[in-house]
Design a protein around this nucleic acid. Structure first.
Length: 551
DNA sequence: GCCGTTTTCGGCCCGACTGTTTTCAGTCG
């Protein structure tokens, strides 16, 4: 052990890491490239150093190749105070999200700087969203492969941070349960907890079992014990397994698969049931699916036999709110429409970005007219069985007004109005901005009402009672944006919207053909909020939808 | 900030790989 000054336990790699970070941060701030290089050299040199820095004197440290007296001082400082002032200075002037980005593989200081300064993106979550909207590709040095690469790596990064999107986990979770059932015949396994309840965000794959799982039962290493996370992982996702007796299995499963208030209605004198249905039967309540076991009032309805017809994916008849290569989509208008048609839907609503959305290639008035002509040509080709509707995702400007002159707005079948800029307003301002947009006679749908990105940014605060009331009195539909990173409007607000007779549109906000299937997640969120087929806009068939457009 | 020297300032700038390019830039090890 070195002199009394060394109070902080740091190994060589940790110390080296500080200099790596320092070099990268300094590069972000355009410092002297040679100075930066020397810190980077010190990082390389310290990392592969054989002796232990904590036990070395300053003279020895300064004698390491690439380490001089200035860096030796910084190492001393680090070991005695746990901090390095120079490093802290740069950390203080760099947003934490930008610092986090530096730890994503494939992103070096040059690219991060471009993302920060040119694209004005400040967090990893925002960056992921920008990848999904193909926004990176329009910048010099970024192409489709790099964008895809960054996207994959960010997803991995986010997944390794303790909270996960339901959308990223559920397939793995289903696979795991299927595999467990096959591996242990006669035993019971089920998804449990938040993932069974289809919560938009979950902590991992929760499983209830009737037998202890053997370690290393899978030979391909997809299912292993992870010491760091102190749990099993499946394909890298944490798995939490609880073991109960066969007799109590369904009761224990039920207990873990509903909200606390919901559970309080049920008594557990006897915990032996042969299914979840049996629990409801004994309580005299119609069966309630796990995703809808939230509100205790639901039980009263089901007890009286007033069982709502919850929306299902197969109820969706048309795909609303989509982007094409006219703005920031990956596929052309025709490719998108054709894909939707082949999936068996009756209509497709194209709503590219409006002119203020410069970052997303928003449509100039001239491009709007071109697109409208192309839609008319395609519709002539399709005939009666399928129709493309002309829409626009119009930016709601700071003062709540829409983005085009009335002559242009008139050209669309209808307008979706969404906020994309100035996301930091307080509740009063944000609410009146939205209300002004809702009151605009051209607005038919309010897009992603809070602008939130799950696990990335919270969205601006909004007085939802006022917003829903305004939609009710202006006949405006509210979007449930089905992008699993948005799911905005939040499902908890659906009961109030339905009470006020406000229709909900489940929209994928698709920027590629495949992402129209986001509607699956929108439907799941809708079911959590008790959304019925009748209260959803795009369960209307083509004929009914045409009538809604005209109305 | 380090280094070396025809000593106290001026030069430092690996090499493979990949993706985005049409000859190069950024990242990683």
């Amino acid at each position: 052990m070195r002199g009394q000054s060394a109070k902080f336990m740091l190994n060589n790699k940790q110390i080296a890491g500080r200099f790596d970070l320092l070099a990268k941060l300094m590069e972000l701030h355009d410092e002297n490239p040679f100075k930066i290089r020397s810190y980077a050299n010190a990082y390389v040199s310290l990392r592969k150093l054989e002796g232990d820095l904590m036990t070395m004197g300053k003279e020895h440290i300064a004698a390491i190749p690439g380490v001089g007296s200035a860096i030796a001082d910084k190492i001393e400082e680090l070991l005695s105070t746990g901090e390095m002032k120079t490093l802290k200075k740069y950390q203080d002037i760099t947003p934490s999200g930008i610092q986090e980005m530096l730890s994503v593989k494939g992103l070096g200081p040059k690219k991060v700087k471009q993302i920060w300064k040119e694209m004005e993106i400040h967090s990893i979550g925002e960056l992921l969203y920008a990848c999904n909207e193909n926004r990176l590709m329009s910048y010099k040095g970024f192409g489709s492969k790099l964008q895809e690469e960054i996207k994959d790596r960010i997803e991995y990064f986010i997944e390794s941070k303790g909270k996960y999107l339901y959308a990223h986990l559920h397939k793995h979770a289903d696979d795991l349960v299927t595999w467990l059932k096959a591996s242990y015949p006669g035993q019971l396994f089920s998804l449990s907890g938040d993932i069974k309840r289809m919560m938009p965000e979950v902590k991992g794959i929760e499983i209830l079992a009737t037998i202890q799982i053997e370690a290393d039962i899978l030979s391909d290493q997809s299912f292993v014990y992870n010491d760091e996370k102190a749990c099993y992982t499946f394909n890298g996702f944490p798995v939490y397994i609880e073991v109960v007796t066969k007799e109590s299995f369904y009761w224990e499963l039920f207990k873990r698969s509903c909200s606390e208030s919901f559970l309080s209605y049920f008594e557990a004198n006897n915990t032996y049931f042969e299914s979840e249905s049996a629990i409801f039967k004994k309580a005299g309540v119609h069966f309630i699916p796990a995703e809808f076991r939230e509100n205790i009032d639901t039980i009263t309805l089901y007890k009286k036999g007033q069982v709502p017809r919850l929306i299902e994916v197969t109820d969706i008849k048309g795909i609303v709110h989509n982007h094409s290569t006219y703005s920031d989509g990956l596929h052309s208008l025709e490719e998108m429409a054709e894909y939707v048609r082949k999936c068996g839907f009756e209509y497709f609503v194209i709503s590219d970005h409006s002119k203020s959305a410069g970052y997303a290639g928003g449509l100039s008035e001239e491009k709007v007219l071109n697109q409208i002509r192309e839609i008319e040509t395609l519709n002539a080709k399709y005939g009666d069985g399928f129709k493309i509707f002309k829409s626009i995702e119009s930016d709601i400007l700071i003062d709540g007004s829409l983005d085009y002159r009335e002559e242009i707005l008139k050209q669309f079948d209808f307008v979706i109005a969404s906020v994309h800029s100035v996301l930091n307003m307080d509740e009063t301002k944000a609410t009146s901005r939205l209300i002004k947009a809702i009151e605009n006679p051209y607005t038919r749908i309010l897009g992603h009402p809070t602008g939130r990105l799950l696990l990335a940014r919270p969205g601006y605060p909004v007085d939802f009672k006022k917003i829903i009331d305004a939609c009710a009195s202006n006949g405006v539909v509210i979007e449930l944006n089905a992008n699993p990173q948005r799911l905005d409007i939040d499902w908890t607000l659906l009961p109030y919207a339905m009470e006020k007779n406000v229709l909900i549109a489940i929209n994928p906000d698709a920027h590629s053909k495949e992402s129209i299937h986001y509607i699956n997640y929108g439907v799941a969120a809708g079911r959590k909020g008790g959304l019925t087929k009748e209260m959803c806009l795009n369960t209307k068939n083509l004929k009914e939808f045409k009538e809604w457009v005209k109305s």
